[in-house]
Nucleic acid binder design. Structure first.
Lengths: 219, 219
DNA sequence: CCCCTTGAAATTGGATCCATCTTCTGGGAA
DNA sequence: TTCCCAGAAGATGGATCCAATTTCAAGGGG
């Protein structure tokens, strides 16, 4: 068979750690011990080391030589610039993806948005929000672009969660409204409009997020 | 001592492979055998595996499970979008970096440009051109942004070299002129102008590069 | 003549053991 | 009391051996 029967251990370990980091189970700044992870996930230390490299490539952790790996702690300016990167890159991904979006893609996008509007749990909301945006970029056909966007989402995930906790559930209705505008522009195949709404969506979040100094470690 | 006495083997192997890939010694499409690299660089296979992960994170190679690693072959559209990503990201890096550039940075930038104008060998030219642009971004203070830019340069390096080989040495004078405009704008602390010149610089290269279908594999 | 199967060789992935580096703790001296 | 140094413990980095997967070639059947 041409399909691997069992997933590689390093990929499994990376998947587990990825979920734990994105869900905030592993908080920024805490060291990730190879042996602890190994015995907890039932693997040797070697695939754990490979997994840490994978997660480094995804922008989820940073590795310090002979020290270990941990989820990086970002200051306010860093998060702000990461959001400015999103403002510039994601519209490109959206415009490149839009012409190639098929009927099944649109169904999936609308379905995700309906789930977002119905969901209550914050963890699920964040995962669905992420899945929604990535779905709109999924047809761009450029792996490097999609990977870069994922890295930006990964690096900022912790602060997005902290912000949404602070902002409360009513903040989600802003998100939902802006998502609807994007879907509408995609429906009309209007790239200019889609780009405009997406930039506004990201920029608004950046501004509101940055306005909370208590989310960041720096003075 | 707080400084590591000897560099980690995986870092050394990664450095060697990185140079070989950027210089075109390892061409896109060819498989990179772990054992071959290991004995050639005097290390075990394990640090080679770590090195391949490092290079994957840098956008230089792609790893296929149970298959191996190789420098990816890009089609024309992929290279075009990568350049569009550069057009959007590098101006941000430049604007964020410019206010923090000190006197030593400016000296280094001017020195690099003088070297570029004097150099003859294509390999050195490409390395200096890369160093020049990265130097102008070096004060932005956002690791993630700089890393992303480096990945874009890495991924497109092969096609930049192939293009410059085709275009001939007189093409370099266009580069030098545009570099001078950027330096001038930085001197005046005019972010708008610097951004404008940089976008033009990248866009011109993209257009001329894309105009050579013989550089790409696709139909 | 072509295609499928089968087996061996080559290559990658994983486990265990050892070396090296970092860090923490305890003791001693100013 | 405080600072510094030495030594032990813990963690990461590396080497070797073994298992699983892929690839390629040879042989048989349609």
């Amino acid at each position: 068979m041409t399909q691997p029967t069992t997933e590689a251990a390093s990929v499994r370990v990376a998947a587990s750690l990825r979920t734990e980091i994105l869900d905030g189970v592993i908080e920024p700044g805490t060291w990730i011990r190879q042996e602890e992870v190994a015995e907890r996930l039932g693997a040797s230390r070697l695939p754990v080391r490979e997994a840490l490299r994978i997660l480094t490539a995804e922008g989820l952790i940073t590795v310090e030589p002979n020290r270990g790996a941990r989820v990086p702690v970002l200051d306010r300016r860093e998060v702000e610039v990461l959001y400015r990167m999103r403002e510039r890159l994601e519209p490109l991904a959206l415009v490149e993806s839009m012409p190639n979006l098929g009927a099944v893609d649109f169904d999936r996008i609308r379905d995700l948005q309906q789930q977002i509007e119905a969901i209550d749990d914050l963890r699920d909301f964040l995962a669905l929000d992420r899945a929604f945006h990535l779905a709109t970029y999924s047809a761009c056909g450029i792996d490097h672009l999609q990977d870069t966007v994922v890295r930006l989402w990964n690096a900022t995930q912790h602060y997005r969660r902290a912000f949404m906790e602070l902002a409360g559930p009513q903040r989600r209705w802003v998100v939902n409204a802006e998502h609807s505008l994007i879907i509408d522009a995609l429906d009309r195949q209007d790239g200019q409009d889609a780009e405009r709404y997406l930039v506004g969506h990201i920029r608004r979040t950046r501004r509101e997020l940055i306005a909370h100094p208590e989310l960041f470690s720096d003075a």
